[in-house]
């Protein structure tokens, strides 16, 4: 069952992805030196999410898989975020 065309990611792409990820790591560390109080966590999470998105898309090859995989990943993350929000509906309103 290997009829569908195989996508080969060039080495160069992987290298660029790595450099981007390292750059984001650098940014997230630098940002902690600036005091943004409540925003700090949010920014850290935002940068981490961008990094995760890159890893999922390129390293984990989601960009080139059938859309079913992307739908699943999205669904799982969506459900997980809802779980956190519903749990916080208890903790934030006690």
């Amino acid at each position: 069952m290997h009829t569908e065309s195989v996508h080969i990611t060039p080495y160069r792409t992987h290298a660029w992805v790595l450099i981007t990820l390292l750059a984001f790591t650098f940014i997230t560390i630098t940002v902690t030196w600036i005091d943004l109080s409540a925003l700090t966590v949010l920014i850290a999470l935002l940068i981490a999410s961008v990094k995760a998105y890159i890893v999922l898309t390129y390293f984990m090859h989601l960009k080139f898989e059938s859309s079913l995989f992307r739908v699943f990943v999205f669904m799982v993350l969506f459900i997980y975020v809802l779980v956190i929000l519903f749990t916080l509906s208890d903790y934030l309103f006690r």
């Binding site: 459900i79 809802l82 519903f86 509906s89 208890d90 934030l92 309103f93 006690r94």
Partner: peptide
Amino acid sequence: ALVGYFVWAHHMYTSGMSTTARWVF
């Protein structure tokens, strides 16, 4: 399956959970 995933705290109405969480669940 989907909605059933988000009803769990109806086991916990008397546990001291927030009122908001209680009506949501």
